[in-house]
Design a protein around this nucleic acid. Structure first.
Lengths: 202, 202
DNA sequence: GTCTATATACGGATAGAC
DNA sequence: GTCTATCCGTATATAGAC
């Protein structure tokens, strides 16, 4: 950890701190302390604090598949189950943190009310990258879900639910609203599959 | 406006500013300027900035029915349509602000990572008050939605979707993900009603 | 209750030696 | 590339006259 290049250590520390405390509540001094480097090094790599944020968001974006999706899907192959396996990862994050740590991208998206365009774009890119993965699952599952099924719209809906569910779990400090949302999403998929099966019978 | 008691002017200004810029990005000086009062008055009414936040959250909570629900439901009587009428209010807020202003409670809930317990409780109370109203609609609509229908779980699901949809609309600066989420929720209710109608035929 | 002036701390960012 | 020391603005909060 200490042997990593300084720039990477700074990004790694910021990634953790921005997730735990938020962007504004994390001072440049916090990042310096956690990465064991000093002011001169920091500003050598990042002209401003926001440039560090951009690097963090880019690292999140690049990490969606290797750091989030692949671990979640290693032992799950059914496309619909993969969606719920991903949601289970967020549940685990909430559980391990007593419902304080959820989705860092969602938190940043609402914390920064008037983000710099480059920041906003990277937040959006993170959402899009996540939704892309869900959509892949839905395309694969399409035959069970009806011909006129809109895979993109539904993939976006899954992100909507994950983010809203994390928000409530954090606010109530309770997994129940998260579990409730996931259970209701499950109902929805079941209803779609039942409807499609009925169509095929007819 | 200028004739209002000072304390109310402070709360009103803070309510607006916290919604527009967030809590941390709003300085006490901002609130003083917008409410046309000075430091001495501010700290006469609110010992700390957080005490002002508590007053704002309490005002939001008390305003759910008179300021949000009643206007949204004045001309709508079908219980399911009332749910969509409420969601349409949020769409209007997004539209009027070019997708920058969504749900101030949700924004505060994710901005404040380790809120004071009193703050967190008031955020939760706001969510609960909102969900209560949705649940009333679902109880009224129950006969069309199936006997084993869980009204509380589904009401919480509606909040989940609203918050997640607002988050995405703000991040993309585009109403499309919001509309997509609402349309998918509509599909879900339609599926529930269809399933219940089929049950009754059988 | 309201005003002005100010204490005090901490934030992001910079200077310049090494 | 890394270090120490520091500038300077702004933040919350206070003091004390009126």
């Amino acid at each position: 950890m200490q042997d990593e290049p300084t720039r990477d250590r700074l990004i790694a520390a910021a990634l953790r701190l921005f997730g735990e405390k938020g962007y504004q509540s994390t001072s440049v001094a916090d990042v310096q302390r956690e990465s064991a480097c000093h002011s001169g090094s920091f500003y050598h790599f990042f002209p401003t604090k926001q440039d560090l944020l951009l690097a963090v968001l880019e690292r999140y974006r690049a990490g969606i598949v290797p750091m989030l999706i692949e671990p979640a899907w290693a032992d799950v192959h059914d496309p619909i189950e993969r969606i719920f396996a991903l949601l289970a990862r967020y549940r685990m994050l909430l559980e391990m943190s007593q419902c304080t740590y959820g989705c860092p991208i969602g938190s940043l998206a609402l914390e920064l009310h008037e983000p710099d365009p480059a920041v906003r774009q990277l937040l959006a890119d993170n959402f899009t990258g996540w939704v892309d993965q869900i959509e892949n699952c839905l395309v694969e599952a399409r035959k069970h879900l009806g011909r006129e099924f809109d895979t993109r719209r539904t993939a976006s809906f899954v992100l909507t639910i994950m983010e809203g569910a994390v928000m409530q779990a954090r606010t109530y400090r309770d997994l129940q609203p998260f579990d409730a949302a996931v259970a209701t999403l499950r109902d929805y998929f079941n209803a779609l599959q039942r409807a499609t099966a009925n169509e095929e019978l007819a």
